[in-house]
Nucleic acid binder design. Structure first.
Ligand SMILES: NC(=O)c1ccc[n+]([C@@H]2O[C@H](COP(=O)([O-])OP(=O)(O)OC[C@H]3O[C@@H](n4cnc5c(N)ncnc54)[C@H](O)[C@@H]3O)[C@@H](O)[C@H]2O)c1
Ligand SMILES: NC(=O)c1ccc[n+]([C@@H]2O[C@H](COP(=O)([O-])OP(=O)(O)OC[C@H]3O[C@@H](n4cnc5c(N)ncnc54)[C@H](O)[C@@H]3O)[C@@H](O)[C@H]2O)c1
Lengths: 208, 208
DNA sequence: GCGCTCTTGTGAATCATTTCACAAGGTAAC
DNA sequence: GTTACCTTGTGAAATGATTCACAAGAGCGC
């Protein structure tokens, strides 16, 4: 299949969220226009996005909310549980470990790691913080699919290398530093300081 | 001036980070190629990005590390201190309040708000959690420029409306819900569950 | 079955971003 | 000053994403 743009995947994810809301409100069908209004996009964009994956609607009527939800979950790979490990049990790692928003969408935090003896052994929302020495053996045992990197920037690459060697194929990095992964592994980064800098740019250029 | 693409601003921000590292290593000049290698882009992209704002290099030689840093800081509006308020002193709000990565880059957390009496009055890294009732009066008093929204999704829009009414022109939202702001206000969102869903999509489509 | 209305699915057109390619300008050695 | 060598800055080309516009279906009432 043709490569799909990341912007399209983002929007599919957003559509799914709205569909779930619509379903909760008891609606049966929805048009591309209604879906678009919610997500701040256009009906043509919605239809184009979906058309990459097939044809899900009925002309004249729209989309079945439940059928389209199911299809989107399938496309996005959300019909299953993904096991997530968090590396770094500091401020952000702990917040992530206790975040319900992940579990609710099929991402289960199966382990949290740190190397600080003061943190190892503590429990975060039912998950015990383990020693990072056990990272490699655990990842195989726990069948972890995704790793969240929440350690200081200096340690990030080395821990990425370790989780990759242990077989993890998808990584979400929170350290503000560029990282490299081998082909076949997907790496995404959330860089909050960068987000603030974009806001800073917007503030000083709001006059044009 | 012509509108600049967000992707360009992101990269400028990344260039600045590398320049600072280069400066720390004692380098005086840098070429577009060296700058590109660090950021995973191309030399042509670097030069094009910079060309939107002027001409900063010397042909045959490259860019002065310190002069380009200064120019980029100017362009991005980082030559000054931005005052930040955090709304919501829960898990993620507290992590953000204690995050040094902001202060280091000129973003100063001047206040944190919550409505839970159990949290109001506590101190997070030197900043006292205040009652959200004082939001409007404080924002003017503290000259807050940027607000971080770290409350549950249901409360997010209402708090965005309040900080906007109080004069904030830039917002970074962490609640996983779409929000609207009036023209003239910049809103960005960090949606971690969405990032995981993009990873999920990558995992199930890694074979093409 | 027919006509009316509605909405999809999709090529084509437009708009945006990235990459190419090279003239112009600068350094440095001799 | 001249030559050899680099690297920038930038139009033009290529690629990528979004928007347009409309034919093709599908439901519904009569
Ligand atoms: N706190 C935030 O709100 C925030 C926001 C954005 C980004 N970040 C980034 O997230 C990362 C963590 O930030 P934080 O604020 O949670 O810091 P923190 O100091 O609270 O936590 C870091 C944790 O990583 C652990 N650690 C360090 N090296 C390790 C190793 N080699 N193996 C295992 N564990 C190790 C430390 O023991 C500590 O518990 C940093 O890169 C930071 O820049 C933090
Ligand atoms: N914890 C995470 O790692 C994480 C990650 C991504 C996104 N988020 C999002 O960030 C938001 C906060 O998450 P959290 O995990 O910190 O939750 P939390 O429950 O720990 O914190 C929410 C805080 O907001 C406060 N609050 C609620 N309504 C308020 C109001 N009207 N005025 C002022 N304060 C109010 C609560 O008292 C609480 O202290 C949520 O929208 C969540 O989806 C959290």
């Amino acid at each position: 299949m043709k490569r799909i743009a990341e912007s399209t995947v983002r929007r599919l994810s957003a559509y799914l969220r709205f569909l779930e809301e619509f379903e909760a409100h008891g609606h049966q069908t929805i048009s591309s226009g209604e879906l678009a209004a919610q997500g701040g996009t256009t009906s043509a964009q919605v239809r184009k996005d979906l058309s990459f994956f097939g044809s899900f609607g009925k002309r004249g009527l729209g989309y079945s909310v439940s059928a389209l939800s199911t299809s989107l979950r399938e496309i996005l790979g959300l019909g299953r549980q993904w096991n997530v490990v968090i590396v770094g049990a500091g401020k952000i790692g702990a917040a992530l470990a206790q975040y319900n928003g992940f579990r609710d969408r099929g991402f289960k935090v199966v382990a949290v790691y740190d190397f600080d003896p003061a943190r190892v052994g503590r429990t975060l929302d039912g998950v015990v913080v383990r020693d990072q020495k056990e990272l490699e053996s655990d990842i195989a045992k726990l069948k972890a699919h995704i790793a969240l990197i929440a350690v200081p920037a200096e340690a990030a690459q080395q821990l990425v290398d370790r989780v990759v060697r242990a077989g993890v194929k998808a990584i979400l990095n929170f350290a503000p530093t560029p990282l490299t992964v081998p082909a076949g592994v997907t790496l995404r980064s959330v860089n909050m300081a960068l987000e603030l800098e974009i806001l800073s740019y917007a503030l000083v250029n709001s006059d044009d």
